[in-house]
């Protein structure tokens, strides 16, 4: 499942100021790991449990929404240069996942919602932020 937010007619991204902390706030989630100095903003939201799908996305600063509670979500995120990973449905994480996130410097968030709900919430927030109308 893919979700692209608020692109203008040239396909440029109009989101911009949303940090991982803000994402966690919108999704009623918990930030499990984030470097204090990491202030990257969401470039594009990608929701998928299939890591090969994620690897297809050619964009900077992806926010990965997934239900795949495994090290591979973090490893994939590092490969594509993601700015953060959100694991859904409050899934319990394997002990190694947090340490992989720390080692690779990938912010990690858990939230209680399903991916679809998160997509809707983030879409609304991003649209509100960039001033465009909800579609």
């Amino acid at each position: 499942m893919f979700y692209r937010h608020c692109e203008d007619s040239d396909g440029r991204l109009m989101g911009g100021e949303m940090t991982v902390d803000k994402v966690a706030e919108i999704l009623d989630g918990k930030v499990l790991y984030k470097d204090k100095e990491d202030e990257r903003h969401v470039g594009k939201v990608v929701a998928s449990d299939l890591m090969s799908d994620v690897l297809l996305v050619d964009a900077d600063d992806i926010l990965l929404l997934t239900s795949l509670a495994s090290d591979q979500s973090i490893r994939t995120a590092q490969i594509v240069g993601a700015m953060g990973v959100v694991v859904h449905n409050n899934k319990p994480l394997p002990a190694s996942m947090l340490s992989v996130a720390q080692t690779l410097g990938i912010p990690l968030v858990t939230c209680p919602y399903a991916k679809y709900e998160s997509c809707v919430r983030l879409y609304k927030a991003l649209c509100a932020e960039s001033g465009s109308e909800e579609q």
Binding site: L50, S52, D53, L55, L56, L68, S70, Q72, T76
Partner: peptide, 15 residues
């Protein structure tokens, strides 16, 4: 179930 096996590996690499 581990997030792989969609059959896109080689195609992705080629791409």
């Amino acid at each position: 179930s581990l997030g792989f096996g969609a059959g896109m590996g080689l195609a992705n690499t080629k791409r």
